[in-house]
Amino acid sequence: MRIKRALATALTVGALTLLTAPVADARGAVPEAEAVVAPAAVPAPDGFLYAWEHPHAGGAHCKWSGPNGNWAGCRDKVSDIWNNGYPGRGEDAKLFRGVSWTGSWVCLHQGHSIPDLGANGLRFFGPGEGQGEPVNDRIGSHLWVDAC
């Protein structure tokens, strides 16, 4: 009976640990398993929106601290995106299909990332040209907004 009770307690503690452990996207060199064990290793917000050409931070990348109406070198090429902006005013990134903040849009909330836009299946949902299209390889500009 003692062994069963000890085993049940250990399983309960293990399950609660897994269910309540914070999940983080540790965009640095910290392995994913370490991020769950040591969430303090997640980089602090630095005010930038990051974008990579390929999933999981692969290929060429761009980053912006302010709004950008023409992604130029990254326009229509992004498959991984991360909003590491500061919390508070202007914390969410509104991603537009076209340049100069035109067309349909989606929002990426502060602290969120989508490491594989192609697999994620996210689509532009705001009104305008491109509504319903996949976001992967189709972003042209962005604005920082207070809330989406």
Rank of each mutant, 00 (worst) to 15 (best):
S113L: 03
Y50T: 03
L19A: 13
C62A: 14
R138M: 06
H61C: 05
W101P: 00
T17M: 09
W71K: 01
A29S: 13
H61M: 11
Y50V: 02
R89S: 13
A72N: 09
A24E: 12
P115W: 06
W144I: 04
N84L: 07
T17R: 06
G14L: 15
S100D: 14
G90E: 09
V36F: 08
I114K: 04
G88S: 11
H61V: 01
A8F: 08
Y50I: 01
K4P: 02
A147K: 04
H56N: 13
G58A: 04
F96R: 00
G66V: 07
S65E: 15
G66H: 14
E34H: 10
A33H: 12
A60L: 05
D80P: 05
A51D: 03
N70I: 09
L95R: 01
Q110F: 08
G98D: 14
G140V: 10
I139H: 04
T12A: 15
D137E: 15
H142A: 07
V13E: 03
E32I: 13
L7W: 11
R27N: 07
G73V: 09
Q110P: 03
N84C: 07
G126F: 03
N68P: 02
E32R: 15
G121A: 01
H61E: 09
C148Y: 03
C107R: 01
R123Y: 04
V23N: 11
R2I: 13
A8P: 00
A60E: 09
T20Y: 11
T102F: 02
L143A: 14
H109G: 09
N120W: 14
L11Y: 02
V36P: 00
A21K: 03
D116I: 10
A35R: 05
W105F: 13
P39L: 01
W105R: 00
W52G: 00
A8L: 10
R123E: 06
D76M: 02
A93T: 04
E53I: 01
S100R: 15
G118L: 01
S113N: 10
P67G: 14
I3A: 01
V23I: 09
N83K: 04
V37L: 15
V135Q: 02
G90L: 11
R97M: 08
N68A: 09
V30L: 08
A147W: 11
A119S: 10
R138Q: 14
R75A: 15
W71S: 00
V23T: 11
Y86L: 14
W101G: 00
F125A: 12
S104C: 00
D92G: 02
V37M: 12
K77N: 15
H109W: 11
H54R: 05
D92Y: 08
N83T: 15
G132P: 03
D46I: 10
F125G: 10
L108C: 06
S100H: 14
G128E: 10
W71M: 01
D46K: 10
G111K: 02
P22S: 03
S79A: 15
R89N: 12
G85A: 13
I81Y: 10
E32N: 11
G140W: 03
L49G: 04
P67M: 13
V106T: 07
Q131H: 12
N70K: 05
Y50Q: 03
G111T: 05
